[in-house]
Computed example of a mutant assay.
Amino acid sequence: MTYALETRGLDKHFGGLHVTRDLSLKIAPGARHALIGPNGAGKTTVINQLTGVLEPSAGRILLEGQDITDLPVHKRVLRGLSRTFQINQLYPDLTPLETIGLAVSERLGGGGNWWRRMGTRDDINAEIAETLERFRLLDVMNDRTSTLPYGKQRLLEIAVAIAAKPRVLLLDEPAAGVPEGERKDILAAVAALPRDVTVLLIEHDMDLVFSFADRISVLVSGALLVEGPPDEVARDPQVKAVYLGEAA
Rank of each mutant, 00 (worst) to 15 (best):
A103C: 08
L78N: 09
A175P: 05
D172Y: 15
I124W: 09
L137M: 07
P194W: 08
L137Q: 02
D143P: 00
P194F: 12
E180M: 14
H74S: 06
A176C: 03
E106P: 01
Y91L: 10
G181E: 13
V104F: 03
E64P: 01
L81H: 10
K75A: 09
A126C: 04
V77K: 09
A159H: 06
P166V: 05
R136L: 07
P149K: 02
T69I: 04
R117W: 14
Y91P: 00
G112P: 00
S82M: 02
D185G: 12
Q66P: 00
E173P: 04
E157K: 09
L108C: 02
I186P: 00
Q86D: 10
E182G: 00
R121I: 04
V77P: 07
G151T: 05
L102E: 02
L90V: 03
S146R: 15
I68W: 04
P174Y: 10
S105F: 01
G119R: 03
P92C: 07
P179M: 11
A176Y: 07
W115F: 13
I158F: 13
V178Y: 03
V140T: 14
N113A: 13
N125W: 12
R136T: 13
I100R: 00
W115T: 14
R107K: 11
D123Y: 14
D205C: 07
E182R: 01
P166F: 08
S82T: 12
D172S: 15
A126S: 14
G80Y: 12
E180H: 10
E127D: 11
E64Y: 14
L81Y: 08
D196P: 05
T84H: 11
D205W: 02
R144I: 04
G109P: 05
L193A: 11
S82A: 15
T198E: 08
L193V: 15
R76L: 04
E130L: 04
E180L: 15
P166E: 13
E173I: 05
S105P: 01
L187Q: 01
I87Y: 13
V73Q: 14
L193S: 08
V190W: 11
L187V: 08
D143H: 10
D196V: 08
M141A: 12
R183C: 05
P174N: 12
Q89R: 15
V197L: 13
A176I: 03
T84K: 12
L156C: 07
K75C: 13
S146E: 15
G151W: 00
V197P: 03
